[in-house]
Amino acid sequence: MRSTLGIAAAAASIASAQPAAARDPLVLRPTEPWTMNYGEDSCQLVRIFGEGEDETALMIEQFGPSERVRITLISRYAQLRVRPYPHYAIDRKTARSVSPPQIGVRFGKTGEAMEARVKSASMADGRFITVASAVRPTLQGPETEKEQDEPYHLPALSIDALAGSDRVAFEGLADGDLILATGPLAAATKAMNACSENLLSHWGLDVAAHRTLRSPVRMVDETVPWLNYPEQQSFERMEGLIEYRVMVDSAGRATGCHVQSGGGPNTDFGDAVCHGMMNAVAFEPAINADGEPIASYFRGTVDFRFL
């Protein structure tokens, strides 16, 4: 299902500037309204910025209710400052491992830049596609740890935190920083929250009960090794990014595993994740407001990469 949100691009206060040097920021304005793609297993906001060779696509995705998103940037300016793995896994001069590539993602003019681990690849048309996973959109500082006895709330993007944001900036790219003048993000955030919550009904779950859960599904022991790198992909030094969902019944039994994104034609990465989840992981069921176990889900991301 596909629909368009008519969200105004009120970004007149952002001065557009062409980069005079590689490190100067480039500001691109939107050329289309936000498009919301409603899937059975994901929600995706898409918007196009710039024209001609500058055309840049921004995709913001969620795979269930969450405070975090996956951001995909497709642009000639999306090239990383250093090559992604496995090309420079070892610095030959020092014989030390090089840290995984990262970029900074900043919401709003004064928001905190969040470091995000990324994957990147070149495209046939000369553009680059760069994916940053588990980004927490906020104008606040770094995330603080929650207290153990803090009540559980169905996670969602903070509309209040993003209401004052009028841009998304990407820092640490090869050609300098890139700023996308999104305009106010409150309406887009509200649409994403509604879509991600509605995914629960597609999965056959009680949405109302999940809004008032005492506790979500949890792994009984997070230290248990459950995942192996697929042998062929390891031999060929292939990498992958898998989003997955496990359905867990009221007794804590895993009843099904679904690869939500990243499977593609090669299913080995997704198969490895689901095999581990279904055979090596024990779960505690979700508990509703009345203290009773109910059917729910466990969701996660696996980043297969060489370090």
Rank of each mutant, 00 (worst) to 15 (best):
L45H: 13
D303V: 08
A9T: 09
R245C: 05
M114L: 04
S250D: 15
A174V: 13
S99L: 10
L307E: 14
A20H: 11
P101E: 03
A156K: 03
L200P: 05
K146L: 00
D160R: 01
F269S: 05
D175M: 12
V69W: 05
F269L: 09
A15D: 10
T56E: 07
A113E: 14
V98D: 02
A20P: 05
A174R: 06
D41W: 06
L80D: 07
R117E: 15
P25D: 03
D249I: 10
A251S: 07
M192E: 07
S13C: 13
D166A: 06
A78I: 12
L26F: 10
G126Y: 13
F269M: 09
R127L: 11
S215Q: 08
R253M: 00
L241S: 11
N37I: 03
F298S: 05
I48L: 15
P142S: 08
E292D: 04
E112F: 06
A132H: 04
T35A: 14
Q18Y: 07
C257G: 08
P19E: 00
L28S: 09
A15F: 13
L5P: 10
I7M: 06
V248D: 09
T223N: 11
R29N: 08
G104I: 03
V217H: 12
L157W: 04
L5N: 08
R167E: 08
C274D: 02
A116N: 03
G141P: 05
E145T: 00
H210N: 11
D54M: 10
N279S: 13
M59K: 08
E40M: 12
G300P: 10
R136N: 00
M238R: 15
V69A: 02
D149G: 00
I14S: 07
V131G: 04
S158N: 10
L205S: 07
A134E: 08
W226T: 07
I71R: 09
A132I: 02
V207A: 13
H153F: 03
A78G: 01
F306I: 15
D54T: 06
I287R: 00
D175S: 15
A181T: 10
E55G: 10
A57T: 13
K93F: 12
A295Y: 01
P285G: 10
G111H: 01
C257Y: 03
G270P: 02
R127G: 12
Q18I: 02
V220P: 01
I74T: 15
I74Y: 15
